[in-house]
Amino acid sequence: MEVSSSDRASLLVEWLNELVYLAETERWVATEFKVERADDRVFRSRARGMTVDLVPGLVKAATLHDLRLQDVPGGVEAEVILDI
């Protein structure tokens, strides 16, 4: 899965929206991720997951509303609001 955007926070939203799309169309839920590339414009990851009969809790989309992403010791901390 590779997504591109103008900044790191919206990259996260793009990536989550890919997962929303896969959950709805393929009934596939990711459970394990490996990040291959993460910079300010591109985020590439590999994911393992499982198909499910019923998606638990449908998400319409990850939104840009009150989107927040900041560096913290040992990683990043982010807040994304999902429309359900």
Binding site: S5, Y21, K60, A61, L64
Partner: peptide, 17 residues
């Protein structure tokens, strides 16, 4: 349904950029 959700997602992204 999901069709409309995706149209909104697609165009929020495009306009944001």
């Amino acid at each position: 349904r999901g069709l409309g959700h995706q149209v909104c997602t697609d165009y929020v992204r495009r306009m944001d950029q």
